[in-house]
């Protein structure tokens, strides 16, 4: 492999993942929490593709594409929930959303 070894990718992915986790824990807007979850999923994707390259097999890339599809469906459902909340004029703050009842 030309360029950086796998360790560099692991460290970058760990940094990205903890940044995303920080966003999930710190922010109160559900929109930004969804965006931070995307960062965490992408950190996992980076690691999957790095290890797929390390072992010279493409199975990791297949898994990364599946993760991408799961992320897309997660965004659809999450944004649907947020739009439903926004239509009821509920304040978008996860600390204040206490009931899930329809």
């Amino acid at each position: 492999m030309h360029g950086p070894d796998i360790q560099w990718y692991v460290i970058l992915s760990a940094l990205l993942f903890s940044t995303g986790a920080l966003g999930v824990m710190l922010r109160r807007s559900p929109l930004i929490i969804l965006l931070s979850v995307e960062i965490m999923l992408n950190a996992a994707n980076l690691l999957l593709i790095a290890f797929s390259r390390l072992h010279g097999r493409e199975d990791g890339q297949i898994f990364a594409i599946s993760v991408m599809a799961v992320a897309a469906s997660e965004v659809v459902v999450g944004l649907g929930l947020i739009v439903a909340l926004g239509r009821r004029n509920v304040e978008l703050d996860v600390d204040k959303l206490r009931t899930l009842r329809g």
Partner: peptide
């Protein structure tokens, strides 16, 4: 997910 989005909307 598509069905869920439609149902939520």
């Amino acid at each position: 997910a598509a069905v869920g989005g439609v149902v939520l909307g």
